[in-house]
Amino acid sequence: MLYLWMPNANEQWRWSIGEQWHTAASLDELKDAVAVHQLKHVTVFFSSLHVQHAQFQLQKTHFKQLGDQGIRYLIEDQLIESVDQVRLSYVYANEKLSMMAINKSRLDVIQHSLGLVPWQVDALLPDYLMLPIPASKQVILKTWGTQFLLRQSEFQGAVIDDLDIFCEFVEDDQQVVISDADVNLYEVLSERLAPEQIVRVALPEIFLDKFKRHRFNLWQSATKEQTISPLWKACAATVCLAIGAQLIHDGVRWYKLKQVSDQTAQLMIDQYKQWFGQGYRVTEQNIKSDFEARVRLSQSADLSSMSLLSRIGPVISQQNVIAERIQYQDNILTIDLKATNSSVLESMTQQLNQQGFKAQLGNIQTVGNQVLGWIKVQ
């Protein structure tokens, strides 16, 4: 894991792989120096000058009543800017609410700057989190360039510019923990604090915490706010896929039904033309009116003729027989037929009788390679 400290103004980059810190004058120099380690992931620290902290004692019931929106306005009086202009992170534990705020514009600048680094960013944190968590009644102080990093508690820290002002706020029963290697810092504090208030220990260069899952990991929270969750993306893709599949299914089904409908209409028109000849242009729209007109031309036709014809029509179509003329009189339907041979007409007559009709086949005449005959059906 690579650890980076982002510089302020004209300061240098600092980097570490968990041991001592190194410096780089530019981003290109930093890339060259780190390249030999072949690292892919990075945890980035930025100056704690850019964050503001606050802590509140809250009962659990009160905390739940406030909700996310209510919690935002607890820190409003302590901010130097509008609460709507900051990105807020908080942790609630043991009836204590710890809050950290950073200006959204400042965070966006940091985010965009990190877009230039060739490593995958796992965490973006204020730099006081590099220090260990102090014990009760203790704070940890570390020299960092021309400034000092201060960690006051697990979720609170700062950057100190003036040690004189810092020492004025150190309580009598409070201890300041520093590195035993930081001789200059010890000498300055010794002039301002009692000896028992200064504790020298071997501080690690980096306090290796689970930074990626830290509640103040601004890279994680920013990513959540700026992008859509992968789970929601998967759900949206699944819904879109299901809708698309249903539309395709409905479209294919409509197309097939349309084909069947068109084929049925064409078969009806073709059969009608076979019965009554080509005549004039027959379509699906005028076939009904044309058929009714033809039936009215018969001597005493009525609606029963249409009913009878609709029942025997499929038999005529099945035998590939052409109806030359239809006449309905005295409840008897007489049809002049043209077929390929006499056996076809005889088979059709037999089939009609089997279906409950009274069918009688009349004289059959041979004309060329076809036969003509008539049949009476009632």
Score class of each variant (00 low, 15 high):
Met1Trp: 00
Lys31Tyr: 07
Glu95Cys: 04
Ile80Arg: 13
Arg213Trp: 13
Leu58Trp: 08
Pro204Lys: 05
Ser342His: 10
Val86Gln: 01
Val321Arg: 00
Asn341Lys: 08
Ile316His: 00
Lys376Phe: 03
Val315Asn: 06
Gln350Glu: 13
Gln378Ser: 13
Ser179Asn: 13
Ala101Trp: 01
Glu205Thr: 07
Ala301Lys: 02
Gly157Trp: 01
Tyr186Asn: 15
Gln351Phe: 06
Gly157Pro: 01
Glu196Lys: 08
Trp232Gly: 12
Phe166Pro: 11
Trp374Met: 09
Gln20Cys: 10
Leu114Met: 09
Lys288Cys: 00
Lys212Phe: 06
Gln12Trp: 03
Val34Phe: 01
Ser261Arg: 09
Ile243Val: 14
Leu163Cys: 09
Glu292Asn: 12
Asp262Tyr: 14
Asn10Trp: 12
Cys235Asn: 11
Ile332His: 09
Pro134Gln: 06
Met348Cys: 05
Asn103Met: 01
Lys137Trp: 10
Val42Tyr: 03
Phe207Glu: 10
Val260Trp: 11
Asp164Thr: 13
Gln174Arg: 12
Ser304Arg: 09
Gln271Ile: 03
Pro134His: 02
Gly362Arg: 06
Tyr186Lys: 15
His41Phe: 10
Ile326Met: 15
Leu39Phe: 08
Ser82Glu: 07
Ala93Ile: 10
Phe56Trp: 09
Ser179Met: 04
Gln111Cys: 12
Gln285Thr: 15
Asn331Gln: 15
Gln350Leu: 13
Trp374Glu: 12
Cys240Phe: 11
Glu292Gly: 01
Ala202Trp: 06
Asp28Met: 00
Phe46His: 00
Trp15Thr: 05
Lys64Trp: 00
Trp5Glu: 04
Asp108His: 00
Asn184Trp: 01
Gln57Ser: 14
Val91Thr: 06
Phe63Tyr: 14
Asp270Tyr: 05
Arg213Ala: 14
Leu114Gly: 02
Val295Leu: 14
Ser305Trp: 03
Ile287Leu: 10
Val201Gly: 04
Glu191His: 08
Ile140Asp: 08
Asp84Pro: 03
Gln85Asp: 15
Ala123Lys: 02
Lys233Ile: 15
Leu352Asp: 01
His62Gly: 00
Leu345Ser: 05
Thr334Gly: 07
Trp232Met: 15
Val371Ser: 09
Ile312Tyr: 01
Gly115Arg: 09
Asn363Gly: 07
Glu95Lys: 07
Asp122Gln: 15
Arg106His: 05
Arg281Val: 14
Gly18Thr: 05
Val377Asp: 06
Met348Trp: 04
Gln52His: 09
Gln57Thr: 14
His41Ile: 10
Leu372Thr: 06
Gly145His: 04
Gln152Ile: 08
Gln263Asp: 13
Gln354Ala: 12
Pro134Lys: 04
Asn94His: 11
Thr283Tyr: 04
Leu345Arg: 04
Ser113Asp: 13
Ile140Cys: 05
Gln174Glu: 15
Ser82Phe: 03
Gln350Ser: 12
Thr340Ser: 14
Pro230Tyr: 01
Gln271Trp: 10
Trp219Ile: 11
Leu107Ala: 02
Ile110Phe: 07
Leu241Gly: 13
Arg294Ala: 09
Glu171Gln: 12
Thr349Tyr: 00
Gly277His: 03
Ala181Pro: 00
